[in-house]
C-alpha cells in the first residue's frame, strides 16, 4: 500500500496531478502510478516524464464513452493492482461524478473540489463550504482516499528524462447501461480565460448587451480576457457559459482580476479569490466586491471604463 494512483481523462490535468503526486511521494517514500484509459498511443512517455513510476493502461471497449460506471470499476481494479491507498483525479464535472463512485467502491473517504491538499500523516484537503462563504478543511480518516482536485491547484512540474514499462491492466468492466447518444462541444470553445493574466469580469452593472463593447475595448487595451457573473451567462446569455466565473463556473488565478459592475456575491467571488490582485469598478460604495479588492474606483462604469481604456495599454 501507499502508492498514489493518478487518473484524468485530460492529459494536461494528469500531468499536474502526477507532478504533485511525485512531490507527495518524495515525502511519503512511496511510488506514483498513473492510469491510462482508452487508446494509450504514446501518451505513457509523458506520464513517465512528469513523474509516474508505473503506468497502467486499460483499453477496454467499455471505457470509451467515459461513463463513470465502467471507469470507476476499472480504476478500482487498477488501484488494487497498484497497491494504491490514494487516488487523485481532477475535479472537472467528469472527475467529480467519478470520484465519489470510485470512493464508494474502494471504501474510501473522498474530498471533491479540493483547492489545497496536504499530507500530514493523513490527507487533509481544503474545499469551499457554506455556499462559498467558508473554506472547510477535511481530514480523511479512512485508510484509503480519493481526492478530486480542481484544475490548476497543482503546478505541472518539469519533464525529466525518465521512462518505464507500461503494464496492461486486465480490467473487467460491464458495458455501461447508459448510452451516449451525442457529445457536442459548447459554443465559444477555445476561450483562453483559464490562462489569461488579466481577466475583466462583468456583471449586472451593464445595462444592455451592446455595452459589453466597453469591457471588450478595455480588455483589448490591457491584453486581457472578459469573463462574467452567472446571471450574464445563464439568464441573459450575453456571454457563453465558458466565460462564467464562480461557484458553478470557472475558478481563476490571474495576475489581475478587474470586476466591473459586479456586486461581489460570494457565489461569484469564490472563483477569483486566487487572483494575485483584485480591482473593482462599481457605482455602489457599499458593494461587497470592494471589501476584497486591492484597488477600487467608486463611480459610474459608463464614464470610468472608457476613461480608463484611453489611459492604459498593455
Amino acid at each position: 500500500m501507499g502508492t498514489i494512483l493518478v487518473y484524468s481523462e485530460r492529459d494536461d490535468l494528469a500531468y499536474e496531478l502526477i507532478s504533485q503526486a511525485r512531490r507527495f511521494q518524495a515525502v511519503r517514500g512511496r511510488s506514483v502510478a498513473a492510469a491510462l484509459l482508452g487508446d494509450p498511443g504514446d501518451r505513457a512517455a509523458d506520464f513517465f516524464a512528469y513523474g509516474a513510476d508505473r503506468v497502467f493502461a486499460a483499453n477496454h471497449p467499455t471505457l470509451t464513452g467515459l461513463r463513470p460506471e465502467p471507469v470507476s470499476a476499472a480504476l478500482a481494479q487498477i488501484a488494487d493492482s497498484a497497491n494504491a491507498d490514494t487516488v487523485l483525479v481532477d475535479s472537472t464535472r467528469r472527475g467529480k461524478e467519478l470520484a465519489p463512485r470510485l470512493a464508494q467502491k474502494l471504501g474510501a473517504g473522498c474530498v471533491t473540489d479540493a483547492v489545497a491538499v496536504r499530507w500530514e500523516n493523513e490527507w487533509r484537503a481544503d474545499r469551499s463550504a457554506l455556499g462559498g462563504n467558508t473554506v472547510a478543511t477535511d481530514r480523511i480518516v479512512s485508510p484509503r482516499a480519493v481526492i478530486a482536485v480542481m484544475p490548476k491547484v497543482f503546478e505541472r512540474g518539469a519533464k525529466e528524462a525518465r521512462s518505464g514499462e507500461v503494464a496492461q491492466a486486465p480490467v473487467t468492466a460491464d458495458a455501461p447501461p447508459v448510452r451516449v447518444v451525442e457529445t457536442r462541444p459548447k459554443g465559444g470553445a477555445g476561450t483562453s480565460l483559464d490562462d489569461a493574466e488579466i481577466v475583466i469580469g462583468i456583471g449586472r452593472g451593464f445595462a444592455k448587451q451592446e455595452d459589453l463593447a466597453l469591457a471588450q475595448a478595455l480588455a483589448e487595451a490591457l491584453g486581457g480576457e472578459v469573463g462574467c457573473s452567472r446571471t450574464l451567462a445563464t439568464d441573459f446569455h450575453w456571454l457563453g457559459e465558458d466565460r462564467m466565473i464562480g461557484l458553478s463556473g470557472k475558478r481563476l488565478k490571474p495576475r489581475l482580476y478587474l470586476a466591473i459592475g459586479i456586486s461581489g456575491q460570494i457565489q461569484h467571488t469564490v472563483g477569483i479569490t486566487g487572483a494575485k490582485l483584485i480591482a473593482a469598478i462599481n457605482s455602489d460604495k457599499e458593494a461587497p466586491i470592494f471589501e476584497m479588492a486591492d484597488y477600487g474606483i467608486v463611480g459610474d462604469l459608463y464614464q470610468v471604463v472608457p476613461a480608463l481604456t484611453a489611459k492604459v495599454r498593455k
Binding site: T137, S142, D294, L308
Partner: peptide, 30 residues
C-alpha cells in the same frame, strides 16, 4: 465517518483596499 471537518472558516483576505473616487480617480487607479 470516512472524513471529518477539521475547520470551517471564511478565507483570510489580505487585500490592500485602496479606494479612489471622484476627480482623478481613474488616473490614480491607472
Amino acid at each position: 465517518r470516512l472524513t471529518e471537518v477539521m475547520s470551517n472558516l471564511a478565507p483570510a483576505q489580505e487585500r490592500k483596499g485602496e479606494m479612489f473616487e471622484g476627480e482623478g480617480a481613474v488616473e490614480k487607479f491607472a
